[in-house]
């Protein structure tokens, strides 16, 4: 479970997050929907401990963010950009990370074999990752986030830059993980992704959550046929001078 309470982040006089609060239930997919620069990645980076918060709190499985090492066992993370070690092979990376996260050696080998087959990367697994395409790197990073079997998944724009086939695969995988009881927090700027897989969607704009609910609730409230309409409606409303 992930809980965020009045989280703020300031860069000098610029306020990137303005008191964001929400809660992600166990076994559900929560999507943060927002345009570029809305604050999605900043929020996710604070929750994963990559950035310091200015005020407020965030908890993963009841443990306060930034309070030590144990919290890092509670989540798997996939960043927006697949920056990864070019000089390691995919297999070395997955083995090393899995081993540090305490996955048993034999189980780790089996999981890597299984995931690489499912993700169609087994042929490239022994090549250095510098030779991988962006999509292949994303697959390796996604595998890295789920192999240790953490109770929470935090995914920053998981479907961006993927071909339609793998985008569909990724969406199925995310839903599948939630069905297994995992808590999934993901950010996206693609409304259809949120519509397809999110149980709850929060629209974030200018560092604030401006609308929140199930996709169906949001569409009904705003009288729109899809989330794209809701998103445009909400963001345009926000931009109107008071």
């Amino acid at each position: 479970m992930i809980k965020v309470e009045k989280l703020t982040k300031r860069y000098g006089s610029f306020e990137a997050l303005k008191g964001v609060s929400f809660e992600v239930e166990e076994g559900s997919v929560f999507s943060l929907l927002g345009s570029n620069g809305a604050g999605k990645t900043t929020l996710i980076k604070i929750i994963t401990g990559l950035l310091e918060k200015t005020s407020g709190n965030a908890y993963i499985n009841g443990i306060q963010v930034g309070s030590g090492v144990d919290i890092k066992r509670c989540f798997g993370y996939m960043p927006e950009q697949p920056h990864i070690y070019d000089r390691l092979t995919g297999r070395e990376f997955l083995e090393m990370m899995g081993s540090i996260r305490g996955v048993d050696k034999k189980a780790l080998k089996d999981k890597i074999a299984r995931f690489s087959e499912v993700m169609e990367i087994e042929g490239a697994l022994d090549a250095e990752m510098g030779s991988y395409s962006k999509g292949m790197k994303q697959k390796v990073i996604f595998a890295n986030s789920i192999i240790p079997d953490p109770p929470n998944l935090i995914l920053d724009e998981p479907t961006t830059g993927l071909d339609p086939r793998f985008k569909k695969f990724m969406k199925d995988q995310i839903k599948n993980q939630a069905e297994k009881g995992k808590t999934v927090l993901m950010s996206t700027h693609i409304t259809s992704v949120a519509e397809d897989i999110a149980d709850v969607t929060a629209i974030i704009n200018g560092g604030r959550i401006v609308a929140q609910g199930t996709p169906e609730q949001l569409m009904e409230e705003h009288g729109c046929k899809n989330l794209e309409g809701v998103f445009v409606d909400v963001v345009n409303d926000e931009r109107k001078p008071a």
């Binding site: 994963t48 401990g49 990559l50 090492v69 144990d70 890092k72 066992r73 989540f75 993370y77 960043p79 920056h83 990864i84 070690y85 990370m97 540090i100 996260r101």
Partner: peptide, 9 residues
């Protein structure tokens, strides 16, 4: 790439 080390337990 620092995210890799920073998110390790």
């Amino acid at each position: 790439r620092l995210w890799v080390l920073k998110t390790l337990p």
